Simulated scan of single mutants.
Amino acid sequence: MKNDIPVYDISTFEEYKNAGILVSRFGHYSKQYLHLHSAHRHSFYHMVCFTKGSGLQTIDFKNYPVLPGMIYFMTPGQVHSWAFESEVEGYIINFSENYFKSFLYNPLYLENFSFFDEHSGDAVLVLPEQTMTKVVSLFEEILHEGKESRPFDADLVKLLMLNIFIQVSRGLSLKQQPQTNSYNQTLLKSFKKLIETNFIELRFPKQYAELLYITPNHLNALCNDLLGISAGQLIRDRVILEAKRLLINMELSIAEISEKLAFSDPSYFIKFFKKQVDSTPDKFRKQDK
């Protein structure tokens, strides 16, 4: 079986592999790992804050400008690339999925932050000036802790990182999003989790409704109320995202991608993709080159 696009583990960064974390000034990182400018995936969490520079970055086939004051968060499995137009500076932290699990009583704590949900729309942000000042100060403290070995330095780095997450989240709260039923939000989060682990095998809302112990009508109404799309469309969007991730690997044929996504026939996959994207898989692949 041919490999997918490059997937980098935290162990790729040898000097940090034992700690499960990489912390660096972005300019140094960008020059040291030039191959990471091309499309690739991570098996770890990835956070970048830009303080200087311009250009374009692509995260799961959506383009975002590179701007001073911008911070973005990526979860394991997402595809991204950079195309810088000028010298870029800032901060980067990569950390493994298990980095906080032995430190926090609640192993799902990061799920409290909307920017670690790739579907939330909060993963790429331009920070308010006051928040940016606080965040830059915290990044500098983290870099300082890495210069020498001192008691509890690893724990302090985790605390400083959590402080960054909290400061960014507080900045987000200024958007004053309307209050929604917490039960419905929890149910939607559970539905998204189930899609993430089952979208290849389970394609119909009724299958997920059974797992959630609710009716398909309830699930569909929930998605329409909170997201403005149907439950079925949310499932189809996840299938299409994975198809796009696979299509940028030029070594995989359309038939192989169809098989990976459990379509019974390549022609059915092509029809499905064209209906959702308004482009054939082959045209999409050529456009993304």
Rank of each mutant, 00 (worst) to 15 (best):
D4K: 06
I5V: 13
D9Y: 12
S11F: 02
T12C: 12
E15H: 12
Y16P: 05
L22C: 07
V23R: 03
R25Y: 14
R25C: 12
G27H: 09
G27Y: 04
H28C: 11
S30G: 10
Y33N: 14
L34G: 15
H35E: 14
H35L: 13
L36P: 08
L36K: 05
R41T: 05
R41A: 13
F44Y: 12
Y45E: 11
H46L: 08
M47F: 09
K52P: 06
G55A: 05
Q57M: 13
F61D: 04
N63H: 13
P68C: 10
G69Y: 04
G69Q: 06
Y72M: 00
Y72T: 00
G77N: 02
Q78N: 07
Q78S: 10
F84T: 09
E89F: 02
Y91T: 04
Y91A: 04
I93P: 03
N98H: 15
Y99A: 05
K101M: 14
F103S: 08
F103H: 10
Y109C: 09
N112W: 06
S114A: 15
D117E: 15
E118G: 06
S120H: 03
D122Q: 05
L125M: 12
V126F: 05
V126R: 07
V126L: 12
T131G: 04
T131S: 13
T131E: 13
S137M: 10
E140Q: 12
E141V: 03
H144R: 15
E148P: 10
L156F: 08
L156Y: 08
V157F: 09
L159W: 03
L160K: 10
I164A: 02
I164Y: 01
I166H: 10
S169F: 07
R170E: 09
P178D: 02
Q179Y: 00
T180M: 14
T180E: 15
N181H: 09
S182C: 13
T186H: 09
T186R: 12
L187F: 03
K189Y: 09
K189T: 15
S190I: 04
F191S: 08
F191M: 01
I195G: 01
I195Q: 03
N198H: 14
F199D: 01
F204I: 10
Q207P: 06
E210T: 06
L211Q: 15
L212A: 02
L212H: 02
Y213H: 15
N217H: 14
H218Q: 15
A221R: 13
L222D: 04
A231R: 07
G232W: 05
Q233Y: 07
L234E: 15
R236F: 05
D237K: 09
V239G: 01
A243W: 00
R245M: 11
L246F: 00
L247S: 07
N249A: 02
E251V: 07
L252D: 00
L252K: 02
S253W: 00
I257A: 05
S258Y: 01
K260A: 06
F263S: 01
F263A: 03
S264Y: 01
P266G: 02
S267F: 07
Y268P: 03
Y268C: 11
F269Q: 00
F269T: 04
F269R: 00
I270W: 02
I270T: 11
K275V: 05
V277I: 04
V277N: 03
T280C: 02
D282G: 11
R285Q: 00
R285D: 00
K289Y: 04
